[in-house]
């Protein structure tokens, strides 16, 4: 009896201590840490990730004259107690049947790729010059590169309208100098779109290139020269390979947003300059076909995500190998 009286509280004590141990384990989880991690994660989950799921869902719906203007995927039939799921691939079928969309994707990728390449060519000497100049001049030059980025993107695109239009600055100067006697049509052409993209995305290319080139050991070039390499050889065999991480980063930062660009083709391009960002915009704002706009967005996302995943996987395996 006594024994039992003793063991019972003891077992209770034991249980309680185990319980408190449990609580101690909880204490180790550190609520502070957990909440610091979860607040930004939850924000991005709700406002960045889930929206893509919603876009995908609505891309499977049908356009309807209603508010919101699409059919619902799930319909609850109360009489039959039956949940009908109506998934329609019609938008995707239409997307691949109508040549407009395919052409728009193709021409966006083409325009983005060509302008990314031009941006690279324009940016490389600037980045190289900055990386090789002395620290004081370097700060000034970097500020000159960064400054346009801080001013309004929309207004910088607008500046080119005044520059390129029929009685704009370029035509006036060329005609004043007597080089041409008829104004050249530059605004509302694909040429203007290329200019616009190169112009607005140039800082995004220069900065990663600069970071890569700045890290480069200058003695490598001296070694190459001592071993008899000509300047162009040491450029292609030493400088360029060392700049590859910067080139990849810069090209991604320019290419991906350029594919979906809307403002530049809308302001500088011709009415028949096909770019997918503009098609999506028109589908949404003019035709009010939300499901079709969602299908266009979903396919664009797939086209863009694949190269990113390939490249990040590659760099990660490289870093893992180090």
């Amino acid at each position: 009896m006594n024994m039992k009286a003793l063991t019972l509280p003891a077992s209770i004590m034991d249980t309680i201590s185990r319980l408190t141990m449990r609580f101690n384990i909880f204490a180790n989880v550190k609520w502070g840490r957990l909440s610091v991690i979860s607040v930004p994660t939850l924000w991005l989950a709700v406002f960045f990730f889930i929206p893509f799921v919603v876009v995908f869902k609505i891309s499977l719906a049908e356009s309807a004259i209603a508010i919101p203007p699409y059919s619902s995927l799930f319909e609850w039939d109360a009489e039959e107690a039956f949940l009908a799921i109506k998934v329609s691939l019609a938008n995707y079928v239409y997307l691949f049947e109508d040549t407009l969309y395919i052409e728009a994707y193709w021409s966006s990728i083409k325009i983005a790729a060509v302008s990314t390449f031009i941006t690279l060519i324009v940016a490389f000497p600037i980045a190289y010059l900055i990386a090789r100049s002395d620290p004081q001049k370097r700060t000034l030059l970097l500020a000159l590169v960064v400054l346009p980025f801080w001013t309004s993107f929309l207004l910088r695109v607008y500046a080119w309208i005044g520059f390129l239009k029929k009685n704009g600055v370029i035509n006036d100067v060329l005609m004043g100098l007597g080089i041409i006697d008829q104004p050249i049509t530059m605004i509302q052409t694909d040429f203007a779109v290329y200019i616009g993209i190169v112009y607005t995305y140039l800082p995004f290319m220069i900065l990663p290139l600069y970071t890569a080139l700045e890290k480069m050991d200058i003695t490598l070039l001296e070694a190459a020269e001592d071993l008899g390499a000509k300047p162009y050889q040491s450029f292609f065999l030493v400088t360029l390979p060392l700049a590859v991480p910067g080139i990849i980063a810069g090209c991604l930062l320019v290419f991906i947003p350029a594919v979906g660009e809307f403002v530049i083709p809308a302001l500088l391009g011709a009415s028949d300059t096909l770019m997918i960002g503009r098609v999506l915009w028109d589908e949404f704002f003019l035709n009010r076909d939300w499901p079709m706009a969602s299908a266009v967005a979903t396919v664009m996302l797939i086209i863009l995500v694949l190269p990113i995943m390939l490249i990040t996987n590659r760099t990660e395996t490289k870093e893992g190998a180090k």
Binding site: F48, P51, V54, V55, L252, I256, P257, G260, A297, M300
Partner: peptide
């Protein structure tokens, strides 16, 4: 990393639908 390069038309449309 993704919002830094995501085309704005996609971000805008997806948030509106959300």
């Amino acid at each position: 990393a993704a919002p830094l390069v995501m085309p704005e038309v996609i971000t805008g449309l997806s948030l509106l639908l959300l």
